[in-house]
């Protein structure tokens, strides 16, 4: 899984894909995840960071993380 490098993200949760012209919005945790992806953080590290910041069980977040990645794929925001 690799987040496309040229995707522009903002702190307010807006995402712009200059390759396709699509705009997106995300919630706070989604915005956090996108910045982690950009920094190439490992899955383990991301899970640790999120579980430290938010009130969530690891197992629940792992499931939601996979769903988020599915969403990114659906929206064509991942490198092939």
């Amino acid at each position: 899984m690799k987040f496309k490098k040229n995707i522009a993200t903002s702190d307010t949760g807006y995402i712009f894909n200059p390759g396709s012209g699509d705009s997106f919005s995300s919630n706070q945790i989604g915005t956090d995840l996108l910045s982690f992806f950009k920094e190439d953080k490992s899955r383990g590290e991301i899970i640790r960071l999120i579980c430290a910041k938010y009130e969530v069980e690891k197992i629940q977040f792992e499931k939601d993380l996979d769903d988020f990645i599915t969403q990114l794929r659906d929206h064509n925001l991942l490198e092939n």
Binding site: Y14, I15, D22, S23, F24, S25, S26, N27, Q28, I29, G30, D32, L33, A52, K53, Y54, E55, V56, Q60, F61, D64, L65, D67, F68, Q71, L72, H75, L77
Partner: peptide
């Protein structure tokens, strides 16, 4: 204190 959790989502602005 930890923040309230919400599933991460991304939505196309349409």
């Amino acid at each position: 204190e930890k923040l309230r959790y919400e599933r991460p989502i991304i939505r196309k602005l349409n």
